[in-house]
Computed example of a mutant assay.
Amino acid sequence: MTTPRPVTLITGASGGIGSALARLLAPTHDLILTGRGGAALTRLCADLGAQPLPLDLTHPETFAGVVGGLGRVTNLVHGAGVVDLGAVAGQDHMVWTHTLAVNTVAPAELTRLLLPRVRAEQGTVVFVNSGAGLRANAGWGSYAASKFALKALADALREEEAAHGVRVTSVYPGRTATPMQQKVRAQEGAAYTPEAFVQPETVAATIAFALNAPRDATLPDLSVRPGPQGNP
């Protein structure tokens, strides 16, 4: 009997790490992709034969109606995220609410809704975190708080779902050559030099390794840092 291909849902697939991961997995996984929408996501889904999924991550209360009609889901990769740098004294509640909604609440709600499907497949949930999820520096308060909370979500989920055969991995990339990093460098008033950072394909390969690892292994936390030539 032929083993069915895993079905992997990736958020943040319009560009950066999510897009690189989708292209890497396409030969062996069936893909469900969500992102900011628009031409980039449409082209990617057409190129890869992937199913687009329209999700507004700022409104997790709308997810149930969107994902209710999905079939199998083996793996769930949370790759979407937003960042706005600023001191605690300078960021009002709207920045914090938006950042936490997209980076923490949306992954929690999407995971909750899809867990029965992932359990049925004994699949894997991957949270793309950040070095800021392990250490909070000045100017990174709202983003780091959302990523610290994402780590807590992953750690709790890992213990809760072990009995169901669901694996949970957090990936902590260092500075990665993505559009988000380009925005960060602009906010920092610094030059964006992609060659100085981890490439999105490298982080994608790390995520793919976690998804495809033999069942006798669980990879709870994986850090991906720039190599010796990097100068973040």
Results as ranks from 00 to 15, higher is better:
residue 160 E to D: 15
residue 175 R to E: 06
residue 179 P to D: 11
residue 196 A to R: 15
residue 189 G to S: 08
residue 187 Q to M: 14
residue 132 A to V: 01
residue 154 A to E: 09
residue 191 A to I: 00
residue 174 G to T: 03
residue 171 V to P: 01
residue 160 E to N: 14
residue 187 Q to Y: 09
residue 210 A to G: 07
residue 143 Y to I: 04
residue 131 G to W: 04
residue 184 V to K: 02
residue 176 T to D: 01
residue 136 A to I: 09
residue 141 G to S: 15
residue 204 A to K: 01
residue 132 A to P: 02
residue 156 A to E: 01
residue 179 P to G: 11
residue 167 R to P: 08
residue 127 F to T: 02
residue 132 A to I: 01
residue 203 V to I: 12
residue 164 H to Y: 15
residue 131 G to L: 11
residue 144 A to G: 13
residue 130 S to M: 02
residue 155 D to I: 03
residue 139 G to M: 03
residue 198 V to Q: 05
residue 127 F to A: 13
residue 199 Q to M: 10
residue 155 D to L: 03
residue 208 A to S: 14
residue 184 V to D: 05
residue 153 L to N: 02
residue 197 F to K: 01
residue 139 G to D: 04
residue 165 G to Q: 11
residue 145 A to D: 08
residue 142 S to I: 00
residue 183 K to I: 00
residue 143 Y to H: 14
residue 187 Q to I: 00
residue 157 L to Q: 08
residue 148 F to A: 10
residue 190 A to R: 15
residue 199 Q to G: 07
residue 173 P to Q: 04
residue 147 K to T: 00
residue 141 G to K: 00
residue 138 A to W: 07
residue 181 Q to E: 14
residue 140 W to Q: 13
residue 144 A to H: 10
residue 143 Y to Q: 09
residue 137 N to H: 13
residue 177 A to C: 02
residue 174 G to D: 02
residue 182 Q to H: 15
residue 163 A to W: 10
residue 125 V to Q: 01
residue 193 T to I: 07
residue 209 F to P: 07
